[in-house]
């Protein structure tokens, strides 16, 4: 065995990466943590000073604090539903595409990846037009097919939306929740599809063959082989996409800007924490408060992810 003490050489090898990490990630984050404890704002642009926990107290006790619970609940629903629905759709399509009997698989894969390839800013703007109540293509299509009344009735059963056509996709609370989720699923499923396809292709086919020989049905094979083998590959992806959707600013802000408005509150029906804090602090030039918000959201995401890790044992396989 050679001696293991190689002095500072490993650190030297790591130095460029660590330096870049420090410059691009660590320092800016530490700086924003520091700003969260200052009164950095437009009126204190070059003479800001330490104010302790004032910014955090404001978020929890300010006039809009009552809204916080509603916005937080919707943010969790939004992030959770986005992940589950996009994974469901992605997995379903992945299983179809993984079947060797499907013709033109490359074609379908390309088609399904497209939503991912178009910049979200552009496609979200497109969706805003498509979902317009009066002129949007979706309502025109539904009306031509005679499906709008049926859809409104079904949704009316599950939400307290009045059954009315044309459907006000972006203008009533219930419908706008459905609309933003649908668009976000459309944006997110290609990623889940790719991940699932990759994971599926790593499952050796002889396992399925052996199961078929033993007389296992397709459903049983899916439950007993596919799901357990995909789990370890998918869990970390799920957790990170939950965190991503928790802060999915663009989809909400570009589609509804947080609207429709809710009486008595600054936050609209589809506002999530990040868009709500943008309205509250960012456009008021309250940089310190905005940083406090960011830390707040970070703590929430970190806690939720930590609970998830524990409950699902995501990294147990790795150990």
């Amino acid at each position: 065995m050679r001696e293991r003490n190689s002095g500072g050489l490993p650190y030297l090898y790591l130095a460029p990466a660590l330096l870049l990490l420090a410059l691009l990630s660590l320092l800016p984050n530490l700086y924003s943590v520091w700003l969260a404890f200052t009164n950095y704002s437009l009126n204190h642009y070059s003479d800001y000073s330490f104010v302790g926990l004032r910014n955090f107290a404001r978020i929890l006790q300010g006039p809009e604090a009552a809204t916080f619970g509603r916005v937080f609940a919707w943010t969790v629903v939004w992030a959770g539903a986005s992940v589950l629905l996009s994974l469901g759709l992605g997995l379903f399509l992945a299983i179809l595409l993984n079947n060797a009997h499907v013709k033109g698989r490359t074609f379908y894969r390309t088609i399904f990846i497209l939503p991912w390839a178009i910049p979200a800013f552009i496609s979200v703007m497109m969706w805003q037009g498509l979902l317009n109540t009066e002129f949007g293509a979706i309502n025109l299509l539904l009306a031509n097919l005679g499906l709008d009344q049926a859809l409104a009735t079904i949704v009316g059963l599950f939400t307290n939306e009045p059954v009315a056509t044309p459907i006000a996709w972006l203008n009533t609370p219930g419908w706008s929740h459905i609309a933003v989720l649908a668009v976000n699923v459309w944006l997110a499923f290609p990623f889940q599809l790719t991940t699932c396809l990759g994971a599926l292709q790593s499952v050796p086919s002889d396992v399925y063959e052996a199961a078929s020989v033993d007389g296992a049905t397709a459903g049983l094979q899916f439950r007993r082989i596919t799901v357990p083998l995909l789990r370890s590959a998918l869990l970390p992806v799920l957790l990170s996409s939950f965190a991503f959707n928790f802060n999915q600013f663009a989809a909400i802000y570009l589609l509804t800007a947080g609207g429709p408005a809710v009486p008595g509150s600054e936050a609209g029906a589809t506002d999530i924490l990040i868009t709500y804090s943008y309205k509250l602090a960012f456009n008021l030039f309250q940089y310190g408060m905005a940083c406090a918000y960011a830390i707040f959201i970070f703590i929430l995401v970190a806690t939720l992810s930590g609970v998830n890790f524990k409950l699902t044992g995501a990294f147990e396989d790795a150990n």
Binding site: N39, S41, L42, N43, G62, P63, L284, F285, Q286
Partner: peptide
Amino acid sequence: QKIQLMLE
């Protein structure tokens, strides 16, 4: 309230 906050 917002202006109050902004001007602090």
